[in-house]
Simulated assay, not measured.
Amino acid sequence: MRLEAKVAIVTGAGSGFGEGIVKKFVAEGAKVLIADRDEANAARVAEATGAQWKRADVSNAADVRAMVDAAVERFGALDILVNNAGIGHLPQPLEGLPEDEFDRLLAVNVKSIYLAAKEVVPRFKAQHRGVILNIASTAGVSPRPRLAWYNASKGWVITATRAMAVELAPFGIRVNALNPVAGETPLLKTFMGEDTPETRAKFLATIPLGRFSTPEDLGNAACFLCSDEAAMITGVAMEVDGGRCI
């Protein structure tokens, strides 16, 4: 029960890594609010885990404010924010991505972290404690060709994590990130362009441990970084990648 009595928000938790994080957090004693645009999947994960859910578009300031208010109203506190929501784009030459897709990519992967910080940081400062965990990617450390703007967005997340950690440490607030390699999530096909045995084999050949990351892998790592066991850890962008970035 490493997160007993803790209250957490996990964005984009209706599937994939976010779902794995919710399952682990609930199992470790946390009260969790799932925030997702996909109401059906958010409700499904909530029913399966005992968490609660609220529809939220993390790129929308009003939705983010309502999401944070809902967690505090329902649970009476807020201790942990996991910025997990994210999108990708299909592999393509960097000059080929349409402008509207670029704008949406930055809104979900970048602006959402800014909007969430504006809401939770004042609360965390007032209580002189809190944990923020940003889900970045190995793409921000070791970029893959034809995913230039996704790579760049996740590089931003890593830099933002370190900058936030330095600034917020005096207030008792820790900020870390996780860098997963591609996993068995709805985004896998987006990264690979197509999901075929040949494409999978080529991708897996770049991962020394020989498998994709799983929601359980991310849940375990997130639980550690958000628990008091990691009380001396801040500003870290930890790879959960089977050795890909070595």
Score class of each variant (00 low, 15 high):
Ala237His: 11
His128Trp: 07
Ser213Met: 00
Leu105Arg: 03
Glu99Gln: 10
Phe124Trp: 04
Cys226Tyr: 08
Asn83Gly: 05
Ala169Tyr: 00
Lys24Phe: 06
Val7Asp: 12
Asp57Trp: 06
Leu133Gln: 11
Ala43Gln: 14
Asn176Thr: 09
Gly243Ile: 08
Gly18Ser: 06
Ala160His: 15
Lys6Leu: 04
Arg200Phe: 04
Ala116Cys: 13
Ser15Leu: 03
Ala126Gly: 05
Val236Gln: 02
Phe171Val: 01
Gly88Cys: 01
Leu115Val: 05
Glu239Val: 11
Glu239Met: 12
Ala70Ser: 14
Ala85Ser: 10
Arg65Val: 07
Gly243Leu: 12
Arg55Lys: 14
Ser59Lys: 10
Phe25Gly: 06
Glu39Asn: 08
Ala48Asp: 12
Cys226Met: 08
Gly14Asn: 08
Arg244Asp: 00
Asn60Arg: 09
Gln127Tyr: 10
Pro145Gly: 14
Leu81Phe: 14
Glu194Ile: 08
Ala231Gln: 07
Ala85Asn: 10
Leu97Tyr: 12
Thr190His: 02
Thr159His: 12
Ile246Arg: 14
Ala48Ser: 11
Asp38Leu: 02
Lys111Ala: 06
Val240Asp: 05
Gly193Asn: 08
Leu133Trp: 07
Arg2Lys: 12
Ala8Thr: 00
Cys223Arg: 07
Ala221Trp: 05
Pro197Arg: 03
Ala139Cys: 11
Glu95Phe: 09
Ala116Ser: 14
Ala201Asp: 08
Pro197Glu: 03
Lys125Gln: 15
Leu97Thr: 15
Phe25Asn: 05
Asn41Gln: 10
Glu28Asn: 11
Gly96Leu: 13
Ser153Glu: 00
Ala230Ile: 03
Thr11Phe: 07
Thr214Glu: 01
Trp156Thr: 10
Val45Gly: 11
Ser137Ala: 06
Asn134Thr: 03
Val141Glu: 02
His128Asn: 13
Gly219Pro: 03
Cys223Gly: 09
Pro98Gly: 06
Gly235Leu: 07
Ala70Lys: 14
Asp63Trp: 02
Ile21Arg: 04
Leu78Ile: 15
Val236Trp: 00
Ser153Gly: 01
Thr190Arg: 01
Ala117Gly: 15
Val64Glu: 06
Val26Lys: 09
Phe75Leu: 04
Phe102Gln: 01
Asp63Asn: 03
Leu106Trp: 11
Ile158Met: 09
Pro143Thr: 04
Ile9Trp: 05
Leu97Asn: 12
Val32Lys: 05
Lys125Arg: 15
Asp228Ala: 06
Ala177Gly: 09
Ala221Tyr: 08
Val240Cys: 02
Glu198Met: 09
Val26Asn: 06
Asp241Asn: 14
Val181Tyr: 10
Ala5Val: 01
Arg200Gly: 03
Gly235Trp: 06
Gly242Trp: 01
Val166Gln: 03
Asp57Met: 04
Tyr150Cys: 05
Lys189Val: 13
Ile80Gly: 13
Arg74Cys: 04
Leu106Pro: 05
Ile113Met: 12
Thr159Arg: 11
Lys31Tyr: 03
Gly16His: 00
Gly76Thr: 09
